[in-house]
């Protein structure tokens, strides 16, 4: 088991953008099971939506990506310590809405892992029922190589 505090030592994500509470099982580089308790206090519920609190699908994809990243990084946490991690491709299917009070169980397996990138596939379950299925491709990138400057060009 890996606690919330230990998770913050393995991936760079922090509140309000860390969506994994606990790692239940881990086989580094191969498979992982993680937990996320969804509460009514999540910062996104007032806006998604004001009269009907539904967890955004994009946030569930991010949660799955963070589980995949934990799977990728757990075996060699020193490697890529100075990197950021970018999604390259997402293939997802949303099956059921997720609401406050739900407990998300993420089950991910590695499809292909190399030293700088990975393809992972997984499912999020609530009460044993799949709510999201996704395949994600992500890579470790040097933040110095990412262009964050934009020249404003009026159209």
């Amino acid at each position: 088991m890996i606690s919330y505090d230990e998770i913050t030592r393995l991936i760079p994500h922090r509140y309000p953008f860390l969506f994994v509470d606990r790692v239940l099982e881990l086989e580094a580089g191969k498979r992982i099971r993680c937990l996320k308790n969804v509460t009514g206090n999540e910062y996104f519920f007032p806006g998604h939506f004001a009269d009907l609190a539904l967890m955004p699908g994009t946030v569930m994809i991010e949660a799955l990506a963070q589980c995949g990243l934990l799977l990728f990084r757990a075996g060699s946490p020193q490697q890529h310590a100075d990197k950021v991690f970018l999604l390259g491709a997402v293939d997802a299917r949303f099956l059921k809405p997720v609401i406050p009070g739900d407990q998300l169980l993420f089950e991910m397996v590695a499809e292909k892992v190399i030293s700088t990138a990975a393809i992972v596939r997984g499912v999020a379950l609530v009460d044993g029922q799949p709510v999201v299925k996704a395949k994600l491709t992500f890579a470790a990138a040097d933040p110095r190589g990412i262009d964050t400057q934009r020249e404003h060009r009026p159209t």
Binding site: G88, S115, I119, A139
Partner: peptide, 28 residues
């Protein structure tokens, strides 16, 4: 530029599954 490796990785992973082969990382 920069996305080459991820697309190449996806292609290689799919071909590996299809043909039950294993492509070494340095060949991607």
């Amino acid at each position: 530029v920069g996305l080459d490796s991820l697309l190449a990785l996806e292609i290689v992973a799919t071909l590996e599954r299809k043909y039950r082969i294993e492509v070494p990382e340095e060949r991607i």
